[in-house]
Design a binder for these strands. Structure first.
Lengths: 215, 215, 215, 215
DNA sequence: GATGAATGAGTTTTCATTCAT
DNA sequence: GATGAATGAAAACTCATTCAT
C-alpha cells in the first residue's frame, strides 16, 4: 500500500513535517523542528528533500494524490449523482476528521503559499475540485440538480463551505466530530441545487455601489 | 471622515503594507519593501508600528473595522431579511472588488496567521460573521428562511462560499468582476435557505467510514 | 556662582544626563531619555552639546572642575598635613554623599570610558589625584608620614580605597551615610602612613609564581 | 584539568571575547569582531552563547571561578595570617599580570555593567572578597591584625587598593610589572592593619559640611 | 532658538543549508 | 547513508543625528 521506493525515512520525515507545520505554520517551523519530530538529523532531511519548500510541496503532492485515490475508489461503486454527492461530503469530512494535522496544513498553508507554489498545487487542487464538478454535472444530466446553476460556481460553493467548516474546526482545536456536519451540509446543498429552475430572488434589485475602503 | 489622529504616515504605511503583503505574502515581504512602497525610511515604520507583526494586526483591526462600519451603514436602511441578505452579498463582493489588495491579504494571510494572531482577528471576524447570522435569524423570524437550518452552520456556509469565490478571484489575479457573482450567489443561497422545512436528502444513508491517509 | 554663560538649558541638560547615566549607564541611556528628563526636545541637546559623547565628557569637565574648586577652597585654610588629609577624605565622601548620581556616573562610567575618552578625563583626574599626592608629600616633609612609601603608590591607595567604598555604596543603592566612613578611613590610613620607617613584612618571602588562567 | 565538556570552540570564543572586550570595551565591541578574533563564523558564537550579554556573563562566571580555584589551592598550604595575606596580594597581582586582557575586562566592564548584571557577578565577587575577609579575621584571632578595624571595611580597602593599582596599570597599557607592587602593598597594609589598637587620628575634628555640586 | 518627525547606517540574531566525519 | 557542527547571508530593529518648520 505504501510506496517505500523512496525509503522509510521519506515518509517518516513527511509525516513529521505535517505535524510540525500543522502546529506552528510553515514559516514558523524550523527545519530542525521537523528533524527532531522525525527523529533524524537535520542533514538527513536534505537527503530526501531538495529544501524546506520541497517538504511543503511534497505534502500536497503525496497527500492530495492519496486523497484523490480514496475519493475515486469510494465513489466508483456509487451510481446516482445525489448519492455520490452525499458520499463526497462524507469522505471529505471523514478524511479530515481522521487526519487533523494534514487538514490544518492543507487549510492554512495551502492558502498562504498560493503565490509561491502556484505551479505545484494548482493542478492537484484542480483535479480535486473537478471531482465535485463532475458529480454536479452528472446530477444536472440526471435532472436531479438545477441546470441554471453554473457548475464552476457550484463546485466552488461546495468547496468553500466545506473549507470553512473545516477551518472553523481546525481553529477550534479539533474539539467536535466533523462528521456530524455531513447530514446538515448535504441537506442544505440539496435544497440549493435541487428542484425547480426559476430564481426566488429574481426581482431583488442589486445596486452597483463601489466601496473603496479608505486608504 | 477619516481618523487622521495617527498621522498621515500611519495610513500611508498601512496601505503600502497591504499592497506589499498582497503581492508577496506576509512572510515573504521585507520591512524594507513596505518602507520603499510607502516612500519612507525603514525606521519610520517603527515610529507608527511596534514591529512587523503589528503591521499585519493593524491591517485587520483598521480595515475590518472600516468594513463593518460600511456594512452596518448600508444595511441599516434595508428592512426585509431577503433584501438584507442580497445586499450583504453585494457589499461583500463589491468591497473586495474595490480593494483587491486588501482582499488578498485578508484571504491569504488571515488564514496562515490564524494561530499566531488568534486573539486579534477572532473578535473582529466574529462580529463580521455575526452580521450574517443576524440576517439569517431575522429571515427565520419573518418566515422566509427555513427554521431547520442551524444559524451557526448557515453563516459559515455563506462566509465559506464567499471566501472561496474571493480566493479563486485573488488566485486568478483579479481578472474578472467579482460583482458578477452577486446574483448567482444570492439565488443559490435563497434556494437553499428558503422554502419548506422537510429535508430532500432525508433518506440518503451516510456510512461511517474512517479514512486515514497513510502516514 | 553658576556659569550661565552657556544658557539655562546647558546645565538643565547636563544634570539630566547625570541622573539618566547614573541610573542606566551611558551606553544603556538614550539621548531621548536625557531629553525627556531635561524636559527639552531631542534636537535641543544638539544645540548645546556636539554629540552624545560630549555629554559625558562635559560631565567630567564641568563637575570635576567644580569638585576640584571645592577641594582647593576648603583645603586652603588648613595647614597641617594630617589635618589636610583628614579633611580631604571628609570632603570627598561628603561630596559624593551630596551628589549620589554624579558619584554613580563618575565611578562607573569613568572606568568603562577609559579608552574612548582617555584624552579628556586624564588630565582632570590627574589634577585630582595630585591633590592627594601633594598632601602626602607635605606630610613626609613635616615628618608625620613615612618616607619609605612611594607617593605615587600611596595616592593610588587612597584613591582606590575611597573608590571602592563609594562603589559599594553606589551598588548598594545609597542606603547608608557615606560620611560614617570618614573616621575609620582616616584612622586606617594614618596607621599605614604614619610612624616608623622599617617594614613589618620585610621578611615575608614573595615567590614568583606565574598564574595564567586557562584560555 | 580544563573542562572541555562544552567543546573546544567554547573556550576559543570566550578567550577571543576577553581579548576583544579588553581592547575596545564591551559596548564598543561587535559580535563579528569576536567571531573574527576567534576565527569562527558569527553564527557559531550563538551555538555556544545565548547572546552577546551571555559572553560577558560567561567571562565572569568562568574566569572568576577559575581564579578563586587558584587562590584556594595556593592559600591552602599556608598557615599564618600575615603570610596568607602577603600570598593573597601576590597571587592577585600575578594573576592579572599573567592575564592582562582579563584584567582589563574585569576592571573596566565589571564596573559599567554593575547594574545590568548585578545578579551574576555579585555572588562571585562576594566570594572573592570573602577570601580577604577570612584572612583578616584569622589575623585578628591570631593577634597580628588590629581588632578595631571593621573587617567589612578592611577587605574593601584591600580590594580597592589592588583594584586601583590594576586599573592604573591597565590604563597605562600594561607597561610595567604589576608584581613589583606586591611588596610595597603588603608593607603598607601591614602597617595599617598591624600593631597597637589606639587611633592616631583620634582627635582630628571632622566637620559636617554638606557639599552639593551646582546642578 | 526650539522642536520632534524622519532618517538610514549599523548591529544583533536567526536559520536554511552544507559537508567533513 | 547519516550526522550535526559550522556557516554566513539575510532580516528586523535601534537610535544618534539632522533639518524643515
Amino acid at each position: 500500500m505504501k510506496n517505500n521506493k523512496k525509503g522509510d525515512k521519506y515518509d517518516l520525515i513527511l509525516d513529521a513535517a505535517i505535524r510540525v507545520f500543522a502546529k506552528k505554520g510553515f514559516y514558523q517551523s524550523r527545519v530542525t523542528d521537523v528533524a527532531k519530530e522525525a527523529g533524524v538529523a537535520d542533514g538527513t532531511i536534505y537527503l530526501y528533500f531538495k529544501n524546506k519548500d520541497d517538504l511543503l510541496i511534497s505534502i500536497f503532492e503525496e497527500k492530495i494524490r492519496e486523497a484523490i485515490e480514496i475519493f475515486k475508489r469510494e465513489l466508483r461503486e456509487i451510481t446516482g449523482a445525489k448519492e455520490k454527492f452525499a458520499k463526497f461530503i462524507e469522505i471529505h469530512l471523514s478524511l479530515f476528521q481522521a487526519n487533523p494535522d494534514l487538514a490544518a496544513v492543507l487549510q492554512v498553508e495551502l492558502r498562504q503559499s498560493s503565490r509561491f507554489m502556484k505551479q505545484y498545487k494548482k493542478e492537484e487542487l484542480k483535479r480535486f475540485l473537478d471531482l465535485i464538478g463532475e458529480i454536479i454535472e452528472q446530477g444536472q444530466d440526471e435532472g436531479v440538480f438545477r441546470r441554471d446553476i453554473p457548475v464552476g460556481l457550484a463546485k466552488r460553493f461546495v468547496f468553500g463551505a466545506l473549507d470553512e467548516i473545516i477551518s472553523t474546526w481546525v481553529t477550534a482545536g479539533f474539539k467536535y466530530d466533523l462528521r456530524s456536519y455531513v447530514q446538515p451540509v448535504c441537506r442544505l446543498f440539496m435544497n440549493g441545487f435541487a428542484g425547480k429552475e426559476e430564481s426566488i430572488v429574481k426581482d431583488t434589485k442589486i445596486g452597483g455601489v463601489s466601496h473603496e475602503i479608505a486608504g
